[in-house]
């Protein structure tokens, strides 16, 4: 079973090659740097939704936990990038542990409602403590603070490689989970949690671990986003940012390692295009959600896996 490894490492290599060969224009290079960081967010979301089968409507909470932990510590406490990343990591673990513990006391639709509710409250907290967060306006992280190992992270090429590095680590980690016996238990919980319990698995603990892994990867994505693009604002904590990763994962294929990347590329360019045409570009998101639930429940890779390649992890 080496072909799955080949394809995923191949995808990473391709993304490196596109840059090395200078195929990207400046515009697409910037877009892809964003897409790669957002895909990390999608990968985090997919661990919980795609593999474990838990639908969260509040992942913006985890994304913004990392985003604000990194951003505020650099802005207010003069942390360097390394320190900020470590803080963001620890804070994301803590937040996902607490939220996971509370939300997992409910099941089914209540879980979905509770995650959405917590996320909305985090958003309101960011607005309420505007003295620290500067609310809707947000904070800009100066170029001089965005230096890591003496690399200027605001330089477009370095930024692309940094995003690609974070992406590669998370993708490989996701692939490892998907192939491990731990991942198999998560899938078992998704498929039939009652049976998983009756096989002797501590389902509740596995679910909590899935929330923590998922929330922490989302937090890493948030921290990377803030540091690489220099902006930390409340809009990243609002409802749309909880819906985006759901949509990317659905489009690309829930429970597939490369699904979030495909979904994110597609939606990013679709929204980019639509927002030139109309202010009401979020209608695209609404229509996409309906189409995918009505006609393509498995998403692109999920459909391919179902029809032709059952080995896709």
């Amino acid at each position: 079973m080496k072909r799955d490894l080949f394809i995923h490492l191949g995808a990473i290599a391709l993304l490196f090659l596109l840059e090395i060969l200078g195929i990207f224009s400046d515009y697409h290079q910037g877009n892809f740097a964003r897409i790669l960081v957002l895909t990390v967010y999608g990968i985090g979301y997919n661990v919980l939704f795609g593999y474990t089968g838990l639908l969260s409507l509040g992942h913006a909470l985890f994304f913004s936990a990392g985003l604000y932990a990194a951003g505020l510590s650099i802005y207010h406490l003069d942390y360097n990038v390394g320190q900020a990343l470590i803080l963001a990591f620890c804070f994301s673990v803590l937040v996902s542990l607490v939220i996971g513990y509370l939300a997992l006391r409910t099941v089914g639709v209540s879980f979905m409602i509770v995650t959405l509710m917590f996320s909305q409250i985090a958003y309101l907290c960011i607005l309420y403590f505007g003295g620290i967060t500067r609310g809707d306006e947000g904070i800009v992280i100066q170029q001089s603070s965005r230096v890591f190992l003496s690399l200027d992270l605001s330089d477009p090429t370095i930024r692309y490689y940094s995003a690609l590095t974070v992406f590669s680590f998370c993708l490989v980690f996701n692939l490892w989970i998907a192939r491990s016996s731990f991942g198999r238990v998560l899938i078992a919980i998704r498929e039939n949690s009652d049976r998983a319990l009756m096989l002797g698995y501590n389902v509740q603990l596995y679910k909590l671990l899935a929330v923590i892994i998922s929330g922490t990867i989302s937090g890493i994505a948030g921290a990377s986003y803030g540091i690489l693009f220099g902006y930390v604002g409340a809009s990243f904590a609002a409802v749309p940012y909880s819906i985006f990763p759901l949509l990317w994962v659905l489009l690309g294929g829930a429970g597939t390692v490369l699904g979030p990347l495909i979904g994110a590329i597609f939606m990013f360019y679709l929204i980019d295009y639509a927002s030139d045409v109309t202010d009401a570009y979020m209608i695209i998101v609404g229509i996409a959600l309906l189409l995918v639930t009505l006609f393509a429940r498995r998403g692109l890779l999920g459909e391919l896996r179902y029809r032709f390649f059952p080995w896709i992890p």
């Binding site: 198999r184 238990v185 498929e191 039939n192 096989l199 002797g200 389902v203």
Partner: peptide
């Protein structure tokens, strides 16, 4: 889960297996 891992096995009255997984994966679990 503690009772099961302590040595009680249970099979369901209504067939309860992981329909989307292979026979191998079902037993591996």
């Amino acid at each position: 889960y503690k009772r099961i891992s302590g040595g009680i096995g249970y099979t369901f009255q209504i067939t309860s297996i992981f329909l989307n997984l292979t026979v191998y994966e079902n037993v591996a679990l």
